[in-house]
Design a protein around this nucleic acid. Structure first.
Length: 333
DNA sequence: AAGTCACTCAACCGCAGGACG
DNA sequence: GCGTCCTGCGGTTGAGTGACT
């Protein structure tokens, strides 16, 4: 079963676009504008899938696109955004006028990731590789022992080159993934809609951090000790099956492993630096975003406070929006 | 000069969500 | 409420190209 293909794949051309095909799309769009992409190939006289036409337009032909290389400022912004929201390329691209999600994704995969790795920073967690390794060792003492021990063994066999370390860092990440060990991004995206654990190199510190990166100097993250577990998303109160645990919106407030809670509270209420504002906005918008991201009320089982919990979120949302009206404008989710 | 390798980036694929009848 | 269609998105692929041997 499943969906039928969007077009007859056997009869449509694939692969690189010719100048003539580009011209046809441009001419059609100039006259009719973009509309139903599934009809455009036929109307424009193209033997292409509508989806392919849309992609060609959005990624290459759109007149507002930049085709020059990324500036250091753009690169810095991508790194910052990625440290906060992960690989949500379309959201990151919206911060960069004239860039598409494909551009950003490609640039990250081919340049920025390697740049970070060369600096000794894990491009997934945005933490120093050494810290990732030490955290992974800590985790390995737990129930994920097999994979992590294997990793440590492998790591010990190739300790010499930087590249090997970095490669191993990726393997560490993969192993953690396979063992359902979540990290900041994942725990945020997958586990709790209101849970946002800053990486140990939090966005609050990241501005300095990334500036160094782009200057090509090695920076060391002012991180907490290695006891900060990758997978401990602040030990938030999670509703559990079959319990009558009550929880409040504030239970899901992020806590930064670096900052004492009191100062975080202060931070939440201040406008601080632009980077901080960015981080907060993203955080808050992410929270808003989560309203559409599988807030699984049912998952709370018999938790009777589900609706009041949602109400509380909405109330708090309103409260925050009144305090930070720019929230809705920074990231347009 | 020829072969190989690494890198880049345009394009494709499949899935998810929203709109609409 | 359901099915279909369209669009958006993130991950992946593979052709093209330059560097290296």
């Amino acid at each position: 079963m499943g969906r039928p293909p969007c077009c007859d794949k056997s009869n449509v051309k694939k692969g690189l676009w010719t100048a003539e095909e580009d011209a046809k799309i441009l001419a059609y769009v100039a006259i009719h504008g973009v509309g139903n992409w599934s009809l455009i190939p036929k109307k424009a006289g193209l033997n292409r899938c509508g989806k392919s036409c849309r992609l060609r337009w959005t990624n290459y032909l759109r007149p507002d696109l930049k085709h020059d290389s990324f500036s250091p400022q753009e690169e810095e912004l991508i790194i910052q955004c990625h440290s906060i929201i992960g690989s949500r390329w379309s959201s990151i691209a919206r911060k960069l006028p004239g860039r598409t999600d494909n551009d950003v994704k490609n640039h990250w995969n081919t340049k920025l990731k390697k740049k970070l790795m060369k600096m000794g920073i894990d491009p997934v967690t945005h933490k120093p590789v050494s810290q990732v390794l030490s955290e992974f060792r800590n985790i390995s003492s737990g129930h994920h022992g097999n994979a992590s021990e294997a990793f440590v063994r492998n790591f010990k066999t190739e300790p010499s080159s930087n590249n090997s370390i970095l490669t191993q860092s990726n393997s560490a990440w993969e192993m953690m993934r396979h063992n359902n060990i979540t990290t900041s991004h994942e725990s945020y995206y997958n586990n709790s809609p209101m849970m946002f654990t800053n990486p140990t190199c939090t966005p609050f510190h990241f501005s300095n951090h990334s500036n160094h990166l782009l200057n090509g100097t090695t920076s060391s993250c002012s991180s907490s000790s290695s006891s900060a577990s990758i997978t401990q998303p602040n030990q938030v109160a999670q509703p559990t099956h079959g319990t009558t645990t009550t929880f409040q919106w504030s239970d899901y407030l992020l806590s930064d492993p670096v900052l004492p809670l009191s100062s975080q509270t202060q931070v939440m209420g201040s406008s601080a630096t632009s980077n901080l504002t960015f981080a907060q906005n993203e955080n808050f918008n992410s929270q808003a975003d989560c309203s559409s991201e599988k807030i699984d009320i049912k998952a709370s089982g018999t938790c009777h406070s589900a609706s009041s919990f949602v109400d509380e979120i909405l109330d708090k949302d309103q409260e925050m929006l009144s305090q930070f009206p720019q929230l809705l404008t920074d990231f347009d989710y």
